[in-house]
């Protein structure tokens, strides 16, 4: 049995993350939380980011570990070409079908 390819979809949080990353470039989780004006939560942002990375909408890299204090390096995220295409298509569809919800 051949599988039908799944149409990419975006949840409201995923749309917000992609919008922020497209507008402001590379960011880490806490920056996304503060830029989202409390629409993203600290507890959920990394689960969302992990899921989006699996879907191929984002890619991440580790920044250089802090020299003075040690500790874990932060993970920086940026939108991929697929993520940008999906966001643009999603925004267009939303604007055409539901103009009242279009940002």
């Amino acid at each position: 049995m051949t599988k039908t390819p799944r149409i990419p979809s975006l949840s409201s949080k995923e749309t917000l993350v992609l919008e922020l990353l497209v507008q402001q470039g590379e960011m880490y989780g806490l920056q996304l939380v503060s830029s989202s004006r409390r629409r993203l939560k600290r507890g959920t942002v990394y689960v969302t980011l992990g899921r989006m990375e699996e879907k191929g909408y984002l890619r991440s890299r580790l920044e250089a570990p802090p020299a003075k204090t040690g500790g874990l390096p932060r993970r920086l995220y940026e939108a991929t070409a697929l993520g940008r295409r999906v966001l643009s298509a999603w925004t267009r569809v939303a604007r055409e079908l539901l103009p009242e919800f279009a940002r």
């Binding site: 880490y28 989780g29 806490l30 600290r42 990394y46 689960v47 980011l49 992990g50 990375e53 991440s60 802090p66 204090t69 500790g71 874990l72 390096p73 932060r74 993970r75």
Partner: peptide, 19 residues
């Protein structure tokens, strides 16, 4: 994988913000 992509970034944020 879960540690690398979900747990570690949370702890990294905690450490950086606290410091």
């Amino acid at each position: 994988q879960t540690m690398q992509h979900v747990i570690d970034p949370v702890i990294a944020d905690l450490q950086h913000e606290y410091e």
